[in-house]
Design a protein around this nucleic acid. Structure first.
Lengths: 122, 122
DNA sequence: TTCATTAGTTCATATAATAAGAACTAATGA
DNA sequence: TCATTAGTTCTTATTATATGAACTAATGAA
């Protein structure tokens, strides 16, 4: 498993653009929606199963890192696994309704069109 | 002034990740907040005055393009200017509360810390 | 213990995206 | 006709992303 310590930004350093950026990738958004729906921890391997098709685990690992550094999830080592959960209460206090509105909007939308691949922004 | 036709995606093609991406840049978020607050059109030059410091107009032009292609604004040529306005009603219908929640959250937040420069996401 | 397995991280690199100065273009108005 | 204004497009240096390969740490046998 990995090595370096896990850095979680204090909630004061979490920003709106940072959150939006982290959630602007369909895979990360799917991971976060899953975390929100199941209201429990998720690890990389479990997340890989959520995302349709085969996403390399190195890519998945980086997506978790981005979510962590944006302040959206908290990760904790549990044996060989890395359990991640949403920082829901903190985020709700600092940015009321923001996360939930985004996730619910996406949930509704993604029932129609499932986006798997990275989106080209150009 | 420019030349090529302005492409506005139909609202059906507008996505949540696309909107989040477009708003994940502090400058674009500032532009959109300004558009939302003044409830009228804004052009590139006026936007440049909103953003503190000197942003090259080529960069500003590209930001407007990204907002346009994400489906957040509609642009219309008026003489030499390009008047842009929010697609507020359409967005509200397709993604209720999404845009307004993001903008209000950011407005509150940006009263504390004003972010001018592009944010490094790594 | 030692070794294999599991779960994830880090590295290397090819590809894509961004910022910004320079050159360019279209609409006005002297 | 020419200068001005307001953007756009081009070019290039920098930065970011995806992914396969190599690596590492925690467990669980044998």
């Amino acid at each position: 498993m990995g090595s370096r310590p896990l850095n979680h930004p204090p909630i004061e350093q979490v920003t709106v653009p940072g959150i939006l950026y982290a959630l602007s990738d369909p895979i990360r958004l799917t991971i976060v929606v899953t975390l929100y729906q199941q209201k429990s921890c998720l690890n990389c391997t479990a997340a890989l199963k959520q995302v349709r098709g085969k996403l390399p685990k190195s890519t998945c690992s980086q997506h978790f890192q981005i979510l962590r550094e944006a302040g959206i999830i908290i990760c904790e080592r549990r044996g060989v696994e890395l359990a991640s959960k949403l920082r829901l209460a903190e985020l709700e206090t600092k940015f009321p309704k923001l996360l939930v509105t985004i996730l619910k909007t996406h949930q509704i939308e993604s029932k129609k069109t499932l986006t798997k691949k990275r989106v080209r922004h150009t």
